[in-house]
């Protein structure tokens, strides 16, 4: 009775053609969001366009400029990549938080971004790390910063016939490191009640010269909190400064009350998490 097409294109062009020709088609990466939504009846695709066989979408390439992460690269491959863990420990931590070993064997960073859950763990980390999203469409490629990729819960700037190809991250300068913290009531297998990522650059004397703070699950999309990052620059990250940054993160939050936590709780705890992320990122930066 129910019939769904399954397509496994080998090229970006082919994938875009398939998407363009069937408005009911959905991109399938690891399927750890899509198949769950499909089974729950929340999405009824007419076709699954499996992008895992497109070489450009799978793989990790690292050079002096930075990282290019194929959108459909499984989380497990990222977690097992020693150099990634060294350069972006916060991002890898965020990836490692996704689900379980089984979920990480399939789930991807591209899927995490494109699913556009406000609570997606890697999104805040990517924003803090100045990630950019490489998008392919019928008219060619465009690149947008990670903080502009999601437009609301479940929505992105992708058009129907576009595909996220990769995310690219600039190589962190000297004495720069990142961190990501989330709050879940349990220890794993849960969705963030709030999350915060930070990237901090210090000079030789330990003064902060650049910083970015991003928060998740406290607004319709993950947010870059400029005020929190700005508060850190030029300081030695003393307690008062950290409190200012935490307050900025809380102030930027526009949370709702739902089954996962109250608005008041989220607003408070995102500040705590932002502060912890900053402290952790700074400690790592000092070691570099």
């Amino acid at each position: 009775m129910l019939s769904i097409r399954y397509e496994a294109p080998r090229s970006i062009a082919e994938a875009i053609h398939l998407l363009a020709s069937d408005p009911g088609a959905h991109v399938l990466a690891g399927g750890t969001d899509l198949l769950v939504q499909f089974r729950a009846g929340a999405k009824q695709p007419s076709a699954f366009i499996d992008v895992k066989r497109i070489p450009d979408l799978v793989g990790i390439s690292l050079d002096t400029n930075g990282l290019r992460l194929g959108a459909a690269t499984p989380a497990a491959a990222i977690c097992e990549h020693a150099e990634l863990g060294r350069l972006w420990p916060g991002l890898v931590e965020a990836v490692h938080l996704i689900g379980s070993a089984q979920i990480q064997g399939r789930g991807s960073v591209g899927g995490n971004l494109c699913n556009a859950s406000p609570a997606a763990d890697t999104t805040s980390a990517l924003i803090a790390d100045r990630a950019e999203c490489v998008i392919a469409g019928p008219g060619g490629e465009r690149v947008v910063p990670a903080e502009r990729f999601c437009t609301g819960p479940g929505t992105t700037i992708l058009r129907r016939d576009e595909l996220l190809v990769a995310v690219v991250l600039p190589r962190p300068p000297a004495r720069t490191a990142d961190a990501y913290f989330r709050l879940i009531p349990r220890s794993e297998m849960d969705i963030a009640v709030a999350g915060a990522g930070a990237s901090v650059t210090l000079d030789a004397s330990g003064t902060c010269t650049a910083a970015r703070v991003a928060v998740g699950a406290v607004a319709p999309t993950a947010l870059l909190v400029d005020a929190a990052g700005q508060a850190l620059i030029g300081t030695r990250l003393d307690e008062a400064t950290l409190s200012l940054a935490a307050a900025a993160a809380s102030a930027a939050a526009r949370p709702i009350s739902d089954k996962r936590g109250t608005a008041a709780y989220r607003r408070h705890v995102v500040g705590v998490l932002a502060k912890r992320a900053i402290v952790s990122a700074a400690a790592r930066a000092r070691e570099r």
Partner: peptide, 16 residues
Amino acid sequence: LSPSRVLEGLGTIAKG
């Protein structure tokens, strides 16, 4: 004793 209830009990955040 969920995290939000605990913070409410500790007076850190308002009940809601």
